[in-house]
Amino acid sequence: MAEPTPPAGPPAAEPAGQPAAEPTGQQATPPAGQPAGEPRGTNRGPGRLLIAVYLLFAIAATARAGLQIATKLAEAPVAYLLSGVAAVIYIVAAVGLARAGTGGRRTALVCCSVELAGVLGVGALSLADPALFPDETVWSEFGSGYGYIPLVLPVLGLAWLWRTRGADRTDPSGRG
């Protein structure tokens, strides 16, 4: 016995307020100027490595500052508290980059900017007047104790935010 055939005619419309589903196996058209298949969000591609480095520095700075603040804060309070501030900035920057979207981008932008100003300011002060910092901070001598990564990291973060600047308008997750 033959199966009944569906009636011919136009396809059923999507319910009101619901976007039409994309055909299986096809990607949405990328924004202008973006090659197909190349993700642009701050948490995609090279952004994942940047987030990983921020997380690594967050862990290192938090552990070091936490130990110093807990055991010898009186010896160099400014240095140890600055290291604590740097740790918080690394954490928040990593979260901002990982979140993507407008809110995440703004958070990362502020953190990377403050971080760059901090490493430049503390780096210059620590060289000009070493007595101000009886012990090193993450940012002392422009991050020389950490292989100058604290100096390079905010520059890379700001460059990545600049490179992916159109991604917040196309973030499909709706976060932001």
Rank of each mutant, 00 (worst) to 15 (best):
Q27W: 08
Q27P: 04
Q27N: 07
P30K: 11
P31A: 10
P31Q: 11
G33W: 07
G33H: 09
Q34P: 05
Q34G: 03
G37S: 08
E38D: 08
R40W: 08
G41S: 14
T42G: 14
N43Y: 12
G45N: 11
G47P: 00
G47S: 06
R48P: 05
L49P: 04
L50M: 07
L50T: 03
A52F: 07
A52T: 09
L55D: 01
L55W: 07
L56G: 10
A58V: 09
I59L: 14
A60N: 13
T62R: 01
T62C: 08
A63C: 08
R64M: 08
A65G: 05
A65H: 01
G66C: 09
Q68M: 12
I69N: 05
A70M: 07
A70P: 01
A70D: 07
T71F: 13
T71P: 04
L73V: 04
A74N: 11
P77M: 07
A79G: 10
A79P: 02
Y80E: 00
V85T: 10
A86S: 12
V88D: 02
V88L: 15
Y90R: 00
Y90H: 11
I91V: 15
V92T: 08
A93Q: 01
A93W: 02
A94F: 03
V95P: 04
G96P: 05
L97D: 00
A98D: 11
A98R: 15
A100I: 05
A100R: 04
R105Y: 12
R105Q: 15
R105V: 11
T107V: 13
C112H: 13
S113F: 04
V114I: 15
V114S: 12
E115Y: 11
E115G: 13
E115F: 10
